[in-house]
């Protein structure tokens, strides 16, 4: 029996799915015997934590700066020297002293780090993470390259939102885990797919609109059964997804052979991530690979988006 759980309403709603078939409301006494629980939840920005934002790159107009246009209380931000161009050339050496000073003085533990050029080369983000975790023990650090989107400001926004959601997502996962001890938990992603509890804690942003996505999926699967309460459809919809992970990168490759090699690396990472997201190891498979050459840039720069899926164990 798999449990679908919809959170966010007045009370959690749970439905049971037996042998892939919708089996109506879950018997709460049997709930803890479930093989797995799939949770559909829309994360509320209201519970967002203030974030220490570190951007690695050059100076820019204030309107393009980190946290520009964000509501008050979103956190504190700095720009430190460093980063890479899209061709992988270092723009400047990373100013680790500035990173250290900011981390020590910001008074926050949730960090979002975005380096110029990190979809191509994440070295500076990783180096910042190392400095921050040494300076702030227990810091939770989101690195923007994990979200992969080209576009520094958008990627930075993702990293900030993910970092801000971290504490609330952790509490949420704690709470569901406490209610369903011993039951493996999955959370519905915003688009399609599920992620493991562990993955959810690390990348809550992936599940920002998990309930909305599950609701649509559930309604589609239940057909025109009128009168299905929204949370029921969402809870059922959550059980219909499978572990999924995505990696987006900009890669540089001269020639087919090199492209195949770098694609293999990206596939390796997405397969690893989908297993981390809860896929049974043997079932993880690449679902989709999108490779587009980047316009107006030298030959051999590609935007790569790889999706992997697997069966829940």
């Amino acid at each position: 029996m798999i449990l679908g759980v919809a959170l966010g309403g007045r009370a959690p709603v749970a439905v049971a799915v037996r042998d892939g078939a919708f089996a109506g409301p879950a018997d709460p006494r049997a709930a803890r015997a479930a093989r797995a629980a799939c949770v559909a939840v829309d994360l509320e920005p209201a519970g967002a934590a203030p974030v220490a934002v570190i951007r690695v790159g050059g100076p820019c107009p204030p309107v393009l700066g980190p946290l520009a246009g964000w509501p008050d209380g979103s956190g504190v931000a700095t720009i430190v020297r460093g980063g890479h161009s899209l061709t992988g050339r270092p723009l400047a050496p990373l100013d680790t002293d500035a990173v250290r000073a900011f981390a020590a003085g910001c008074g926050l533990t949730d960090f979002a780090v975005t380096a110029t050029g990190s979809p191509v080369l994440a070295d500076h983000e990783l180096a910042v993470a190392a400095v921050v975790s040494a300076e702030v023990p227990g810091a939770r650090i989101t690195l923007s390259y994990e979200f992969g989107r080209p576009g520094l400001r958008e990627r930075e926004g993702d990293a900030i939102r993910n970092a801000a959601l971290g504490p609330a997502a952790g509490r949420l996962a704690d709470e569901v885990a406490a209610r369903l001890p011993g039951v493996p938990l999955y959370f519905a992603r915003s688009g399609s797919g599920l992620v493991s509890e562990h993955y959810f804690r690390r990348y809550p942003l992936a599940c920002l609109r998990g309930a909305a996505a599950s609701h649509a999926r559930g309604l589609a699967a239940l057909g025109e059964a009128a009168g299905v309460p929204g949370p029921v459809a969402a809870a059922y919809g959550a059980t219909l997804a499978v572990p999924e992970a995505q990696v987006e990168r900009i890669v540089q490759a001269r020639g087919r052979a090199e492209l195949d090699r770098v694609l293999q690396d990206v596939r390796d990472e997405v397969l690893t991530r989908v297993v981390s997201a809860g896929a049974a190891p043997g079932s993880a498979a690449i679902a989709e690979t999108i490779v587009n050459p980047l316009s107006y840039l030298p030959d051999g720069l590609y935007r790569v988006l790889v999706t992997a899926r697997g069966a829940a164990p």
Binding site: G58, P59, L64, L152
Partner: peptide, 14 residues
């Protein structure tokens, strides 16, 4: 001149 992707990544000084 050049790539909009690059502009989105490496922000202008202004």
């Amino acid at each position: 001149a050049g790539s909009t992707t690059a502009l989105g990544e490496q922000l202008p000084r202004g």
